[in-house]
Amino acid sequence: MEATEQPAERIDGGDLSCARLLILLRGRVADLPAGSIVHLSTTDPVAPIDLPAWCRITGHDYLGVAEPGPPPVYVVRVGASPVETRPDRPWHPVG
């Protein structure tokens, strides 16, 4: 699985809630080149649902779980043409 690729960025999401976690992730991936791998650790129980959904909305690739944890580490690959989302609502595209 590609989830084992070396990350360009590691993010400790701690116990952030969904919205705060996605705002943190969105800000970090904005500065990374397309194809970069991001490892995100979080104890948020809905992360396995929210992360794949957010990736579909924004054009990034959800690659699964790199480490089962605790806490689990999820893997995202930065997309080539990401969809911009609202600053206060990272799951709502701008426009």
Rank of each mutant, 00 (worst) to 15 (best):
T85Y: 03
V78Q: 06
V65P: 01
Q6D: 14
A30D: 13
D12I: 03
S17K: 06
L63M: 12
G13S: 00
M1A: 15
T4D: 14
V38D: 07
Y62S: 01
I23P: 04
S41N: 08
V73A: 02
P93S: 11
Q6L: 11
E84T: 14
D12F: 07
T4N: 12
I11P: 09
I57S: 03
L32V: 03
L51V: 11
G59M: 09
T4I: 09
R26I: 01
V65E: 13
E84R: 12
E5Q: 14
A66Y: 07
A66T: 01
V46C: 08
G69R: 02
H92S: 12
R86Q: 14
A80S: 15
V94K: 12
V38W: 00
R89W: 04
D12N: 10
L21Q: 10
L40D: 03
P72Y: 03
D15F: 11
L16C: 01
V83Y: 02
H60C: 05
I37R: 06
R26L: 02
V65Q: 12
H60T: 05
D15L: 07
D61I: 00
A53N: 04
R26G: 14
G14D: 10
Q6E: 15
P71Y: 08
S17L: 12
G79I: 01
P90I: 03
R28Q: 13
D15S: 15
P7K: 06
P48Q: 07
V65M: 09
A47E: 04
I11V: 15
D15Y: 06
P90Q: 07
E9W: 01
V83W: 05
R26V: 08
V75W: 03
T85N: 04
L40S: 04
L32R: 03
P72N: 01
G13Q: 03
P33D: 14
L24M: 15
S17V: 05
R89A: 13
A8T: 13
A19H: 12
V78S: 05
M1L: 12
D31G: 11
P48F: 05
T4P: 00
Y62R: 00
S17Q: 10
P52Q: 06
V65C: 12
E2V: 09
G95N: 07
S36Q: 03
